[in-house]
């Protein structure tokens, strides 16, 4: 199953067939979800209209985590099975996941201002998201720092797996730290169950975010494959142009080249 899609051409064909549908699902669920979230859903009895930030914040935070899971899974596949598409998928997932994590931090901060009275609170969840954001940044920095693509992909995959082992440990330690320093969290843990009038728009927003992620991921993988193809073509072209010059290096070749030159003159 997995190795069926190891062939880039087959993947591109499949992606081309799926992308229009994903586009429709993304657009439709965003339209319905945003309409319900911003207009028809009721305001919270405590938080008022600012609760509407949740419809963006919660799916963003989820996609930030999901993006890292995809990144780590793809890195594992690329290291273990040398799956040629997996490292493209891992590389493609990183900026999307980082953007969602950044969005979750930004909306969390915007939500915190009316709720807590400050732009930033060292809340356990926000802090773990911040560390996750740094993990994404490190991953992308390592990709761009190593020039050889295959080496960069392997080094980044090792880092992604080390990070994946650490994410639950970091999450646990930050929760531990938070209970020591801030016993009273304002966010209701578990809390009263959500009304279905809020649950529906939230669910639809989750669908929209997931479809958007899948769509952009496929686009980015396609772009990455195209970039590799261009790289190979350029390399071949350069090799062909350098060909005669390279041949001149040997004494025999030099004579041959001289002969060609003399014939030309």
């Amino acid at each position: 199953m997995m190795h069926r899609f190891a062939n880039p051409t087959r993947f591109v064909r499949l992606a081309d067939r799926m992308l229009p549908w994903l586009f429709i699902v993304t657009l439709g669920s965003f339209a319905v979800g945003l309409y319900m979230a911003l207009i028809t859903s009721p305001p919270d009895y405590q938080q008022g209209d600012s609760v509407r930030i949740m419809y963006v914040h919660a799916p963003s935070a989820w996609m930030g985590l999901f993006g890292y899971m995809v990144l780590a899974g793809a890195s594992f596949a690329s290291l273990v099975w040398r799956h040629p598409l997996a490292d493209a998928a891992a590389k493609a997932s990183a900026p999307i996941g980082a953007a969602f994590t950044g969005l979750a931090l930004l909306t969390g901060s915007l939500w915190g201002q009316p709720m807590w009275g400050t732009w930033w609170v060292w809340d356990a969840r926000l802090t773990s998201m911040l560390v996750l954001f740094f993990l994404y940044l490190g991953y992308m920095a390592l990709w761009s720092a190593i020039e050889d693509r295959q080496k960069a992909s392997k080094a980044a995959a090792i880092l992604a797996l080390v990070g994946a082992i650490n994410v639950p440990i970091i999450k646990f330690s930050v929760d531990w730290w938070n209970t020591l320093h801030q016993p009273a969290s304002i966010m209701r843990q578990g809390g009263p169950s959500m009304d279905s009038a809020m649950l529906w728009p939230l669910g639809i927003m989750f669908v929209a975010f997931n479809a958007y992620y899948a769509m952009v991921l496929m686009w980015r993988i396609k772009a990455e494959l195209a970039a590799r193809k261009i790289e190979t073509l350029r390399y071949n072209q350069a090799a062909r142009q350098e060909g005669p010059a390279a041949r001149q290096e040997g004494p025999a070749a030099r004579q041959e080249g001289q002969a060609v030159l003399e014939e030309g003159s």
């Binding site: 560390v131 740094f134 993990l135 940044l137 490190g138 920095a141 390592l142 720092a145 190593i146 080496k151 080094a155 090792i158 880092l159 080390v162 990070g163 650490n166 440990i169 970091i170 646990f172 330690s173 930050v174």
Partner: peptide, 22 residues
């Protein structure tokens, strides 16, 4: 991971410090 990177000394803290949090 950064041994081949020319300015690895700058990159390494970015990779390692988040892992030092726990």
């Amino acid at each position: 991971l950064t041994v081949t990177v020319r300015r690895g000394g700058v990159l390494m803290p970015l990779l390692i410090l988040p892992l030092y949090v726990p």
